[in-house]
């Protein structure tokens, strides 16, 4: 596995942490902030948004399960 600077991993961790923090805040203060599912619902109301979201889902699945795939529980 390639070695990368630690700051890169920390940046990804901060991004995902912010995403889940925002989602938690939106769920706790229902109505005042759009949740992730609410945002996706708005996107899916548009055909092009639906296609783009499906393409994103395909892209994620391709990266996670096809490109450089290895058994999930491998040490």
């Amino acid at each position: 596995m390639a070695q990368h600077p630690l700051i890169g991993y920390l940046a990804w961790a901060a991004l995902f942490g912010a995403l889940f923090a925002w989602e938690g805040l939106a769920l706790a203060r229902a109505g005042s902030l759009p949740t992730l599912s609410g945002t996706f619902r708005v996107i899916m109301g548009n055909p092009f948004g639906r296609w783009a979201l499906f393409a994103l889902w395909l892209w994620a699945g391709w990266h996670f399960f096809i490109r450089g795939w290895h058994f999930l529980l491998r040490a």
Binding site: F20, E23, L27, T35, L36, S37, G38, H63, F64, L72
Partner: peptide, 19 residues
């Protein structure tokens, strides 16, 4: 990466369940 994918999918499932 797989853990992140599972986390995102779990968040989506929870949102759908709430809906």
């Amino acid at each position: 990466m797989a853990a992140g994918y599972l986390l995102v999918m779990a968040a989506l499932a929870i949102g759908l369940r709430r809906l």
